[in-house]
Write a protein that binds this DNA or RNA. Sequence first.
DNA 1: TCAGCGTATTGAATCGTTTCATCGTGCGCG
DNA 2: CGCGCACGATGAAACGATTCAATACGCTGA
Lengths: 336, 336
Amino acid sequence: MPRTARRRASISDVARLAGVSVGTVSNVLNRPERVSAATRERVQTAIAELSFVPNGSARQLRVGTITTVGAVVLDISNPFFTDLARGIEARLDQDDYTLMVASSDEDPEREARYLRLYEQHGVQGIMVVPATDEIDHLVALAERGVGIVLLDRPSPVESLSSVAVDDVHGGALAVRHLLEQGHERIAFLNGPHTIHQCADRYEGAVQAVEAAGLDPAVVLEELTVSLNADGGDAGTRQLIDRDDRPTAVFCVNDLVALGSLRTLRRAGLSVPDDLAVVGYDDVTFAAELATPLTSVRQPTHELGVRAADLLLRGSDAEPQHVVFQPALVVRESSAR
Amino acid sequence: MPRTARRRASISDVARLAGVSVGTVSNVLNRPERVSAATRERVQTAIAELSFVPNGSARQLRVGTITTVGAVVLDISNPFFTDLARGIEARLDQDDYTLMVASSDEDPEREARYLRLYEQHGVQGIMVVPATDEIDHLVALAERGVGIVLLDRPSPVESLSSVAVDDVHGGALAVRHLLEQGHERIAFLNGPHTIHQCADRYEGAVQAVEAAGLDPAVVLEELTVSLNADGGDAGTRQLIDRDDRPTAVFCVNDLVALGSLRTLRRAGLSVPDDLAVVGYDDVTFAAELATPLTSVRQPTHELGVRAADLLLRGSDAEPQHVVFQPALVVRESSAR
DNA sequence: TCAGCGTATTGAATCGTTTCATCGTGCGCG
DNA sequence: CGCGCACGATGAAACGATTCAATACGCTGA
């Protein structure tokens, strides 16, 4: 069979074959009850015959709307963000919306690229975990009528809806716990403060130290690492090669903590005796690691559901700011 | 500021404001070198003034093509599939293509829905991990000119490109290893055989038993579970509540294995002494679990890269069938 | 027989781009 | 002085659907 590069069948091809007008074909597609059984039958045969699939761009150009929403997360490899996506999807499914997910990899360029892509394709709204503190472009998007919900961080402006978890509190929970365990030198493997969650968790850490009447400059040491297991490896290697090694590590997420635990194990150090470790997110595998990981749990799924909820209210509904509270889950990695 | 529901600015609004024709605006957008510096300047000011964003649907309707490809995977929560997606993205980035990912959750309905969505929006091609063995709809898609690459399973038909890992061999590797460890009663926590990978891994398991001169009906016991940690929990609970408990469990993926290990730990059973466990995929956390997990490693990232490679050759290139080989990584969960 | 009505179908306008044949204009050159 | 040539800019057609006012066609009842 020769590979004929034939054009996709259009609605008028169908109309011609069925011997009706394009309007009728469109009616068969969208309001079948308006067309007589006989014609409907004939049109449907023609559709099958040509294996016609309506052109989504044409449809969307005409009707102007689409039941798709986009999401941009920081890192699709991080279970936290896929759980979040699942929460979003769960809510969207109820209204027959579909979700497109993209990963910015914490790169503002990539974030902008996907935002542009989504806007150009006229999605109903976008949920985004911003890669930086700079959100003017999001405000601009919203002003152009695109529904925007800030994910996993509170909105700095009134006009943008947001769904967040109190990261300051989360950071404080983790560090207060380590202080209570008697640690007085704590390393914080964190990401860049341009990422809001990182800045907030650090602030919480500082507050916890101060609340205990100690000096953050002495107790707390921050290392900037990349937000994955490799980052945990790298940061931890730096720590253990020194004589004034801290006694505890607080990792900004569980992936970093995974890398940290991995490196400690390879170096033959024991957790929590030589070094206590606390993670963040409480992902599925956290409880099942060689040393079960103490972690700050977030209502991840609920976060997604709520965000989708806000988005589906439409872009002209009153902006709303939801903040959930995190909880500490203590396991062996920080206490016996 | 009153919330004016004003229409999105179009190219003709820009033209009017800049005092030029729409054709010129389009040229500024797409071939700036063809328009004089003065006009270009004027048009760009108008664009900024109206914060004009071109309508992607209209553009695509006209040019007919788009630099986006879609992927449908079985489960976005499974690190195996996100690693796969990362591989795809890595290759697509080189050609400035963008990737949209969706999760079928092993539901043929959902799969079909996303395929339709992608086709309607005229994506350049689709990579899909089929949820069932029935792939006629994919062949039909390909015949309509949509580039299709089967992911993670060999194509049963010549005309569809595919990138796969030898699952029969992988299943055999796992079970042969368990037999060598002296196990003679092995449970296989598997998914439904309608999922090709599941069927193949089972076939490999049977082959390994036969190659050892044993009877699969005696040695092997298959339990069908859902392909996540909860499935592992459920399947394992069934096993341990019996007196004729097997001595080893082969889990069809690492998520199932995670659930299995979790349940065994809670039941106070020791791994591998009471029960040996082998997983599949060798995800990041496999080596760091309470009992480091023996697993079958796949070249996941490479799989994605290669699939994207095939897709980018265009839909009329000669179909190709790539098969990678898996490797067994032995850890404590199956041997001391 | 015909007015009147309801139902099924039609056909043209429309959405916002891109593309391309056409048109003006200013300039160099014979 | 006038011809031809570049170069910029123009404007209309085309992409493929949806929508809606207009029309065609039977039928019923007076």
